[in-house]
Nucleic acid binder design. Structure first.
Lengths: 251, 251
DNA sequence: CGGGAAGTTGAAGAGCGTCAAAAGTAGTGG
DNA sequence: CCACTACTTTTGACGCTCTTCAACTTCCCG
């Protein structure tokens, strides 16, 4: 399946039901509302958002946008996992973040997106046109305050990631990353232990400033030493959490 | 001079003239207003900010706050350079950013600062109590919008830094850093060429995920190859900009 | 001047990357 | 249901960049 093909699927869905939303108010049933922008509005105010929102659906591997695209929209993940990345001209890639339900995507720089974004798993998103969202912001300043909070949270996470990339060893990076995935799962109301790790070794490597081979070796080493277990591909079980925590370098 | 001692100096200045500000409106004469939060307000509205602002002055090497301190204030640099950093328990340090006039400091996490902050050069700052600033925000939502813009700018910069830390070689990191310092100087209305590099090799290293020795070696190498010159300590002249740009990896 | 910090330079070593190949996994079509 | 293919992951051997450790030099500030 080509990336282009599934992008089309996403687009079709998007065009398919822009209006139905303002009637049904799907946001009222949204499971991640408390995590995201929309928590700033009361139930009866949500219609102002539903009126301008559009649903987008992506299959695993689909691109959402590239950093060369005009930053016309902002997205909000409702289900699935998205990776955002930056490329160097020679092809080196840095995955600057993995985003989960409730997270916002669409950082802009000079009218273009500040990064590329691609679905790691099958994903659904809420799509807002920037201009329209700005109008709603005019009416509800508390939305802007909420967006500011979300931005600050992300900046705190970015600080941590810089420590990881600048000062941690390969083993510390993997341990930190697994613990982070676990705690983020808890934040979203999921259980902490068998961690969902839907991204490939290569994506992990590009996120942690390593190579696939190193990630593979370290993960194997952690398994052999009994800190983690790999029951099925895509899931990692934390067997000895305190060992992982010590290895993370943060303690 | 101990860090504690100069902190006292800063504090004394801060207490010394909290009131004089609302009379004189120093913000009206502020040279970096266009870069910062205050650009969101008209001249006659500035009094609402000046009423709650306090001046702080730091000598080079002084700490502004540590990540264990209660995040009671937000600061705005008016002159000088501040470094913000995070420490690992074993002492490894990551300088997550160097901040210049117009930049904001005081990111919070769970009521504490998200990082430590220390003056690189002699520095002056505007200090706002968070609670009081929040009240002014209530009245002028456009301040929040401006803060959101500033936060987004910083997030864009953080993305770049992650690429640098995760995927660039030592040489590319140094070249990128020097070019960034140069372009940031231009943003603040200074000239691009003899770059002010007030931070120590050690600070640079901790910012770029390297060691002092490596920074020193690469800088020497760049000088020998004629890309840069070191007329005086603390200044670096870009002799061959396009060579630096090629070396940065971004082109 | 003089003493301590900052910066430079050198030699040796470690950690991670690179290259290569094998093993495992998933999707496809007969 | 199985075979075929393509991709991902794992494992191994080797090499290189950057770190580490150490000594020396330069630069400040008293």
């Amino acid at each position: 399946m080509s990336t282009f093909e599934v992008k089309q699927i996403g687009s079709r869905l998007a065009e398919a039901r822009p209006r139905s939303y303002s009637d049904q108010s799907p946001c009222a049933a949204c499971t991640v509302r408390s995590l995201t922008l929309c928590s700033a509005l009361e139930r009866d105010e949500l219609s102002h958002l539903t009126a301008i929102v559009t649903s987008v659906e992506l299959a695993a591997g689909d691109g959402l946008f590239e950093d060369t695209d005009d930053a016309t929209h902002i997205f909000n993940i409702t289900a699935g996992v998205i990776k955002v990345y930056k490329l160097l001209p020679d092809g080196r890639r840095q995955v600057t973040g993995f985003l989960f339900p409730g997270d916002f995507i669409g950082l802009e720089r000079d009218g273009r997106y500040a990064y590329g974004a691609e679905a790691v798993t099958h994903t659904t998103l809420c799509r807002f046109r920037r201009k329209q969202l700005a109008e709603v912001f005019q009416r509800f300043p508390k939305l802007e305050r909420r967006l500011l909070e979300l931005a600050w949270n992300e900046m705190v996470a970015d600080q941590e990631q810089m420590v990881l990339l600048g000062r941690k060893t390969a083993r510390e990076r993997i341990a930190s990353f697994l613990l982070l995935l676990s705690s983020r799962a808890v934040q979203r109301g999921q259980k902490a232990n068998p961690i969902n790790v839907p991204m490939s070794r290569n994506d992990m490597a590009d996120h942690l400033g390593l190579t696939t081979e190193t990630v593979s070796r370290v993960v194997t080493s952690l398994r052999r030493q009994g800190a983690i277990a790999l029951p099925v591909p895509g899931k990692i079980e934390i067997v000895d959490r305190s060992a992982l925590e010590e290895m993370s370098g943060d303690l």
